[in-house]
Computed example of a mutant assay.
Amino acid sequence: MGITTMTSKGQLTIPKEIRDELKLTPGTRFYVTIRNGQVVAVPKNKKLADLAGILGKPPNGARLSLEAMDEAIMDAVSEDDERIRREWSEGDR
């Protein structure tokens, strides 16, 4: 673990020893999310299989079917689209 400071632009410098260990190079893109109140950044250079289990086990132990996952994704995209449209229209005022 290293210590870093966020700039006024929200940028972080990843310590060299971590960059070296993960083979991160300039321009590496990251998936960034929040997990248990912590910022989690996963290099996009990882294979999809490397991300398996990143969110932990489902809280109730239930697994979703592919159809249920597709539906959840469609719902999330739809909600995001509605939010973006609402923000755009509020910005026009």
Rank of each mutant, 00 (worst) to 15 (best):
M1R: 05
G2I: 04
I3S: 04
T4S: 15
T4V: 07
T5G: 07
T5W: 06
T5M: 15
M6L: 09
T7K: 02
S8M: 08
K9V: 12
Q11P: 06
L12K: 05
I14D: 05
I14P: 02
I14T: 06
E17S: 12
I18W: 08
I18D: 01
I18C: 04
D20W: 02
L22A: 04
K23A: 12
L24Y: 11
T25I: 12
T25P: 02
G27E: 14
G27H: 08
T28N: 06
R29D: 13
R29W: 04
F30K: 01
V32I: 09
T33I: 03
I34T: 15
R35S: 15
G37A: 09
A41Y: 04
N45H: 01
N45E: 01
K46H: 07
K46R: 13
K46P: 02
K47I: 03
K47Q: 07
L48Q: 06
A52H: 07
A52W: 05
I54K: 03
K57F: 05
P58L: 14
P58A: 15
P59L: 09
N60V: 11
N60C: 11
G61M: 00
A62M: 12
R63M: 14
R63F: 11
L64S: 15
L64D: 08
S65G: 11
L66M: 08
L66N: 08
I73M: 10
M74D: 13
A76E: 03
V77M: 13
V77I: 10
E79H: 06
E79T: 13
D81T: 10
E82H: 06
R83W: 00
R83K: 01
I84Q: 10
I84M: 06
R85F: 10
E87K: 13
W88D: 10
S89D: 12
S89T: 14
D92M: 15
R93N: 14
R93M: 11
R93Y: 06
